[in-house]
């Protein structure tokens, strides 16, 4: 399963160009179960990429990597649990450290926000989208984040407003923007559709 191709959109919508090995340079890799496949493919193309890699897996076990043994593997149950670990790795990292992210947009958005805050330029972060196209959405009204949004509009899991899904994306927060769909005409809500890639 290759990197997902998203339809062209506005400049703030991230694009993911896929992982390319930077050899045995020190690396931090973060992936969910679907994304782990991209790490395996990366290691198959160039085994040396794992020589100095710290892999943080979110919601899956190290066995998903198969025979590709990195220098260290950390298994975490979810993104919240992975966050302090990734932050610590970034904090201890030296210039030249490579960052490979693979999996959902929510995971990549969240970790790339951590990495840019730690001083890594966005253009240097390698990302490959695998798996669900569900989005991590922030309600612009209550600021609550709803994970795994697959429909437009959707209901904010915090304030209950019906929100439409924008392509406008904040790299600082790692979220797409959700805006009240029936603000002007309360109760008049368009038909719910599945989000497309």
């Amino acid at each position: 399963m290759p990197n997902t191709e998203f339809s062209p959109s506005i400049d703030s919508r991230p694009t993911y160009t896929g992982l390319v090995s930077q050899g045995s340079a020190p690396a931090i890799m973060v992936a969910d179960e679907a994304g782990a496949g991209a790490l395996s493919d990366l290691a198959t193309a160039d085994a040396s990429v794992m020589d100095n890699a710290h892999v943080v897996l979110v919601g899956c076990a190290a066995s998903v990597l198969g025979d590709n043994a990195p220098r260290a593997v950390h298994e975490t149950p979810d993104l919240d649990a992975a966050t302090p670990l990734v932050s610590q790795l970034l904090n201890e990292a030296r210039m030249g450290t490579q960052l490979y992210l693979a999996g959902s947009e929510g995971l990549m958005g969240h970790v790339s926000a951590l990495a840019t805050a730690a001083g890594m330029p966005l253009g240097e972060i390698q990302m490959e989208h695998r798996g669900s196209i569900a989005r991590r959405m922030q309600c612009v009204h209550c600021k609550g984040i709803t994970e795994g949004v697959t429909t437009d509009p959707f209901t904010c899991s915090h304030c209950g407003l019906t929100l439409f899904v924008r392509d406008h994306f904040s790299r600082r927060l790692g979220v797409f923007q959700g805006v009240c769909v029936d603000a002007e005409t309360p109760g008049v809500v368009p038909e719910t559709v599945e989000i497309q890639a």
């Binding site: 703030s12 919508r13 924008r166 406008h168 904040s170 600082r172 927060l173 923007q177």
Partner: peptide, 13 residues
């Protein structure tokens, strides 16, 4: 939402 964006990103919409 837009703080931290570059010129093209915050004008994207």
């Amino acid at each position: 939402f837009d703080v931290g964006m570059n010129f093209f990103e915050w004008h994207a919409p």
